[in-house]
Design a protein around this nucleic acid. Structure first.
Lengths: 158, 158
DNA sequence: ATGTTTCCCTAGTAAATCGATAGGAAAACT
DNA sequence: AGTTTTCCTATCGATTTACTAGGGAAACAT
């Protein structure tokens, strides 16, 4: 026991963000074909098609069919947060036992668990909600995020 | 699509923390039976037994069989972090696509994703690693966590 | 000793989720 | 027409999740 992983970013969310970053890295009116994104990021092509469909239905990208078709971002890359992409591809950022924190109810000594989960969620949101596709694509993360990532202890395993 | 949840606390992790909190709420040398914890927190009894076994193998609780048996914490409640309990019951706190962040490799405009995941992980660790069973059981969360949880916006859904 | 209580261990299981793949229909362009 | 590319539905095997079942092994009481 104790070898699976909680609080994980799924392959789907990871792929979605990477696809969006490819789109963010080309000039504004240009578009990329699914196949090109798949090749650039090493993502299974048909799987990626489904993900791009989610992003389109979520209003983050627009698509065009045919010979010079493809996908492009629906808004400027500096107005799309990483959290937006993850939520559209994969649902709520944080949940406990399948439900979002505000729906939980705890009794006895566990009563303060709810504010704790809320705090964790707020903290995750704070990062993923303020970092945009443009930030990551240009490798210019906000200072506070940079600082967190530069702490060597953050890279050690447990 | 887009209705499952990423970065979720599993039922098992949630139950494990709640069970540990029940143990934290009784006097130091007293012990609780699995059945009593199950009843107090509304956790399926046999399922909880397995979880308590994990906590024991992880060195967080000690057990005693027989008539006046039960479980108690192996260390004082203010020396056990919530992160300890989750990791013992459920494995690493944060992972991306099944692997821990330092093992990932990204190319092109996705290169800065790695420091971003690291920053998220560091942030989650910071909270769950500093809040102890004693803090939650006595409803006295550290100030910074309290502050995060008090922001009304933290309670709104997306 | 005997019986009761409680933890401990292994196995199983139904349902959901994950990470894909397959096959083709519907647009857009040449 | 013919080509390209998106779009849609369906399926799939493997794993994980959240449990349940059944009994063995200590500890204690009588």
């Amino acid at each position: 026991m104790a070898d699976n992983q909680r609080m994980r970013i799924s392959a789907k969310a990871d792929y979605a963000v990477r696809a969006a970053l490819e789109l963010a890295s080309v000039s504004d009116d240009a578009s990329l074909k699914a196949e090109a994104i798949a090749a650039a990021q090493g993502i299974p092509h048909k799987f990626l098609e489904g993900i791009l469909g989610d992003l389109r239905r979520g209003g983050l990208v627009v698509s065009q069919r045919g010979g010079k078709g493809g996908y492009r971002l629906a808004r400027p890359a500096d107005t799309i947060a990483i959290a937006d992409v993850i939520r559209v591809a994969d649902g709520p950022l944080v949940s406990v036992r399948g439900v979002r924190p505000p729906e939980l109810s705890y009794v006895g000594p566990a009563e303060s668990l709810l504010p704790l989960w809320i705090a964790v969620r707020a903290n995750v949101r704070k990062i993923l909600g303020e970092v945009t596709l443009a930030d990551v694509a240009t490798a210019e993360l906000p200072d506070e995020v940079q600082d967190l990532a530069e702490d060597p202890e953050a890279w050690t395993n447990p």
